[in-house]
Nucleic acid binder design. Structure first.
Lengths: 220, 220
DNA sequence: TTCAAGATTGACCACCCGGTCATTGACCGG
DNA sequence: CCGGTCAATGACCGGGTGGTCAATCTTGAA
């Protein structure tokens, strides 16, 4: 992983120091958010001097963006892996797989997740906004493609609006992940049975009769 | 509206000065977030001196919490009004009414909305976290009650999980409102037709066949 | 008209911020 | 052992912070 916002000096650093810096940045930014994070605390945690840090990343913003770059890269890799692994599975299983691997990621990288969720509304700078918007669009396109594949397989009716479906799925998944990562209010996401029920609900909605069209497929 | 975090001095102030302070606070906090908001800029906008402000609210936090208190009060009033007004309408209409009045609120009070969304993940202090959690739980219970009423009316199958449904609705509504309030990415929420499609989608899900039970109601 | 009581003010405080740069000292070819 | 190189350092800078308080102004009863 090459961080585009780092200087050459950083890239020539030994790996252990690089990771020490990134780890400290993760910790500091996730705990306090971008604005409140302190470069002074950060260098103390990283065990280097302030002067050095500014040799590696030209500014606070550059360091933060590097971190975001790293996090989004990992998420992208994860999503691709899940997509490929579950390619042959029926839609409900795929959705469950995506969701539970998302939960696993959030549990495994709580600090990166916190940064992401912070970013989600932080809106502190236009740069952040834009990056976030791009990320959301990508996530939605990803889900949309999953739905379209299911539609081609005949698992969904031919008239289902996959774009709208992806919007809804994205909103709900995002909320579930936020619940999984925050300490409070995530009763719904813990148990596997709950996950099944959620996926079923997303597939069938509130069980309201379908509106005329979009209802001829049948599955065993 | 009595703000519990204000001092007696504030409560004895003439209404115009009170509202000037609240307006300036709204502006400042919404534009910069809690931590980055500056009390210096704030008093300048409000047209009073810093000393006075600290006589009215003992600290930055007290002022902020007062603002949140005010905003959540307004939201509560709005939701109650919509609930009562739409009591006799069928479920799809009720959902659409809730959603579109939410959108109207967000458009009318963009600064309060921004503070809310900021709070949604800000998580800066435990106090904020707790207040936010309470608000979300209330919103979900509100939606749950709407769904249960619809179930009693026979508009939903008797086995529909209203708690889960409320969770999903809440997540999607929240996302739609965020889209409506942010400048970017809200293509889906602008047109009324899009709202209809969204509600239909939430009612019917992805049109997947229902899982065995929960499927005997029929409507003309 | 006087003057005490309370409201209002803004200069001031200690502190912390992101960022800089002269100094330091470890390393190395000769 | 030297002198040169260059990464690492942390004292320092201008500026902004939330919060305080002695001084000033306003008010209204005597």
């Amino acid at each position: 992983m090459e961080l585009s916002t780092a200087t050459i000096a950083y890239r020539q650093l030994e790996a252990s120091k690089q990771s020490a810096i990134l780890q400290a940045a993760e910790e500091e930014f996730s705990r306090k958010g971008f604005r409140a994070a302190s470069m002074n605390s950060l260098v103390q945690q990283a065990g280097i001097s302030k002067g050095s840090l500014f040799q590696y990343f030209g500014s606070k913003e550059a360091l933060f963006l590097g971190l975001v770059e790293l996090a989004t890269g990992r998420v992208r890799d994860l999503l691709r892996a899940v997509r490929d692994e579950s390619r042959q599975q029926p839609l409900p299983d795929r959705l469950r797989a995506i969701l539970s691997s998302g939960i696993a990621f959030v549990r495994q990288h709580p600090r990166l997740a916190r940064i992401y969720f912070q970013l989600l509304q932080g809106a502190e700078s236009p740069v952040e906004r834009e990056g976030l918007g791009r990320l959301e669009r990508r996530s939605r396109r990803f889900l949309q493609r999953i739905l379209e594949e299911a539609r081609e397989q005949g698992e969904l009716g031919p008239h289902v609006d996959c774009e709208l479906g992806a919007f809804v799925l994205n909103a709900v998944f995002e909320r579930v992940l936020r619940g999984a990562f925050m300490d409070h209010l995530d009763e719904l996401t813990v148990k596997n049975g709950a996950l099944d029920a959620l996926v079923a609900h997303l597939l069938c909605g509130l069980g309201h009769p379908a509106p005329a069209h979009a209802r001829e497929e049948a599955s065993p």
